[in-house]
């Protein structure tokens, strides 16, 4: 198992796509910074000030922590799930397509260990991506926007029901928590992609199917028409990671959804192992 893990790690660190994902995240942060500046300028000056006396989005509202939070929330909607899908979706199917899977599977190793090591490496990739992204956002936020307290109000980020504030040091710790909760939520996508990777022999198909499933449920879950179905979508449960940014962390709720996501992840992994063990490698 350890040998497999080392092997998978080496492959991960030697893959060009691994570094590419970090580059794309840097580009995304730059885009976010641009958007943030223009949005903040629009909301804290000119017409907005003339028309309304009070705004929550005042100058002190927009700081590096708010920037990092906006950036993280937006990237979590699409970008990070796509990267995780790509990383996990190509794990088995990519090796099958390249022919290296049969090379590995003729070795005296159990297929279950192979799946598990690939999953762990994907999990590590997700954690690294998230840590890097959050760290980068905080640094960029500090340098370009400046730090302050993290102010929250209902609406734009759909985080809170009532306005609230998280003091700077506490907010920084919350970003730390979000690496854990975010990675844990992303593992559901990773497990789903790994399952697709075992079912389909083409990595592209595995990745597209995962992203399609994620996006469909994500979008459908936000259309009011399907409001009653929403609780049954894994995308709804995945949202729990944002709870760490509520002024009062609803721990009980957080643990409930973390466990639900964990059940999805382990269930999907179990299915992946069972299917992969029975799969005929004919590629």
């Amino acid at each position: 198992m350890l040998t497999l893990l080392k092997l998978e790690l080496e492959k991960l660190f030697r893959a060009r796509s691994f570094y590419l994902s970090f580059l794309v995240l840097i580009a995304f942060v730059a885009l976010m910074l641009w958007g943030f500046y223009t949005y903040a300028a629009r909301k804290t000056g000119g017409e907005a000030v003339e028309q309304f006396k009070y705004t929550y989005e005042s100058k002190q509202y927009f700081n590096g922590l708010t920037f990092a939070l906006y950036s993280l929330l937006f990237s979590f909607t699409l970008l990070l799930p796509i990267f995780v899908s790509m990383s996990a979706g190509s794990q088995i199917a990519g090796e099958a397509r390249g022919g290296t899977l049969r090379m590995i599977c003729t070795r005296p190793i159990s297929r279950a260990s192979l799946v598990l090591s690939k999953f762990l490496v994907t999990a590590l990739h997700a954690a690294l991506l998230l840590s890097f992204f959050i760290g980068l956002n905080l640094i960029v936020g500090l340098i370009f926007v400046g730090w302050g307290n993290l102010e929250l109000y209902p609406g734009p980020l759909n985080l809170v029901d009532a306005p609230g504030k998280i003091m700077r040091d506490d907010a920084l710790m919350r970003f730390g928590y979000s690496v854990l909760s975010g990675t844990w939520a992303l593992l559901v996508i990773a497990a789903l992609a790994l399952l697709c990777s075992v079912v389909f022999d083409s990595p592209a198909q595995a990745i597209v199917m995962t992203i399609a499933a994620y996006l469909t449920l994500y979008i459908v879950g936000r259309v009011e028409f399907f409001e009653h179905l929403r609780p049954y979508f894994f995308t709804t449960d995945m949202d729990f990671w944002r709870d760490v940014f509520k002024p009062e962390i609803p721990w009980r709720n957080l643990w409930h959804y973390a466990c639900t996501c964990g059940a999805y992840t382990t269930g999907l992994l179990l299915a992946t192992v069972v299917i992969f063990e029975r799969k005929d490698i004919v590629t």
Binding site: G98, G99, T100, M103, R107
Partner: peptide, 15 residues
Amino acid sequence: RSRVGAIIETPAFYE
């Protein structure tokens, strides 16, 4: 099986 070596079809490696 660990004492069995094999090539199945075209050998594939990490390029």
